[in-house]
Design a protein around this nucleic acid. Structure first.
Lengths: 225, 225
DNA sequence: GAGCTATAACCTGTCCAACAGATTTGGACT
DNA sequence: AGTCCAAATCTGTTGGACAGGTTATAGCTC
């Protein structure tokens, strides 16, 4: 349907360049001509990519001088964020606590029947994956995502996606998410999710928020006892 | 400092075109050559504007056919307040309510003196910008960002950045964020921020959360009365 | 050698002309 | 009327060109 443009490739390439070469905030990128040669495209394509990067707040162009890194993608904290003492996974759970609990509460009050069907479908997928002892990581995320979507508020999805992609990275780097789980853990995880979905279906706002908080609390404990 | 590019003019012009001519979703825009002549710029400039518009989800280009309206700028704002009966709640504010209130609470309890200094510096920058009647939009965001950073939890920053970059884009496409504010509004905005910063300095967790919630509530009201 | 200056090299911002490939349109033909 | 083909139109991409701003350097002065 939507074939990718060359400028998409250049956009991704420049982001990759910043991350791989570890360019700090304020560092100068290669010139447009240099980037064009690097990616094998014309200068106009590089310009289109740079315009988007600037619009996204990642780079900044100064006429006559060059393009500079304004804030690094996804690692925008580098500037003054002192490395936290909190384990990174705990950190993301801290945010998910408030974010997803509120999402569950709003989903319970505002869900349409279509959104409820999406949540149910996500629950089915998770159940099937868990019962067949598959990793189920993707299905877990998808269910949480659909609950966030059921709020009818895209902002929840935006925050959720940003957070989760980070969590995923950490998990892939650290914990082995595909290790097999004992059956009682599987049953517990299923019950926790079913509690949440049930409360949303019953339009029980406080129950949904509580069930979500409980689930996240237990999940964090399972991840790092 | 940042001289406007011609493509900014074209971007705004096309948005204006969609709004004034009341082009519906799916309607075809004039061709790139037509738009170029309309705004008195070259086709390359129009292309840069269209690339940004597409990246912002407002238009969509189909090769060989033309550029089409994907979602109207004003409706994107509406998309962020689908709240059925809730009194005019901006969707992103709904998320910021829980996210930033929690960040303020944690910042008050966990802040280091270095992080407090960063917050103070951000407050100074905002004060200066507001008192000189500058747009102050960047400074406002920066202060909120530093409060999120003062939690010591990178996850707050990640969620905050994701949310804000989207809010910013919508604002650029829709509302005029640089309109001048009456002096009493400036004073109010200053006081609200100072309340938050003060509570964080005093390590008053509940006070910080409350002040943040109040500030966001008032801010939403200022944005769309 | 230190400091200042002019100049050359480089860079972004913008324009123009051109061609490839996809889509739409209109007319010719049946 | 219905089908098919060709021309017109449009986006995607390239290369070259020039204006105007920035940076570095060579050279001059003291």
């Amino acid at each position: 349907m939507n074939q990718p443009r060359l400028s998409d490739h250049a956009y991704a390439g420049i982001v990759e360049l910043i991350k791989s070469k570890d360019l700090e905030v304020g560092a100068r990128l290669p010139s447009e001509a240099g980037l064009a040669e690097m990616f094998g495209v014309s200068r106009a394509i590089v310009r289109e990519a740079l315009v988007r990067l600037a619009s996204d707040g990642i780079t900044e162009a100064r006429r006559g001088a060059g393009s500079f890194v304004k804030s690094r993608p996804s690692e925008r904290l580098a500037a003054f964020m002192p490395m936290s003492e909190l384990p990174a996974t705990l950190g993301s759970y801290e945010v998910r606590f408030v974010l997803e609990a509120e999402a569950a509460r709003l989903a319970a009050t505002r869900r349409s029947s279509l959104e409820m069907a999406h949540v149910d479908e996500g629950m089915d997928m998770l159940r099937e994956a868990l019962l067949s002892n598959a990793p189920a990581h993707d299905e877990d995320m998808e269910l949480h995502r659909r609950i966030a979507a059921a709020t009818g508020n895209p902002a929840f999805l935006i925050a959720f996606d940003a957070l989760w992609s980070d969590v995923e990275k950490i998990m892939r780097a650290g914990v082995d998410i595909s290790r097999s789980r004992p059956p009682e853990v599987i049953a517990t995880m299923l019950r926790e999710h079913e509690l949440i979905v049930g409360a949303i279906r019953a339009q029980d706002a406080e129950g949904a928020a509580l069930a979500m908080r409980w689930h996240l609390w237990e999940g964090r404990r399972r991840l790092m006892p």
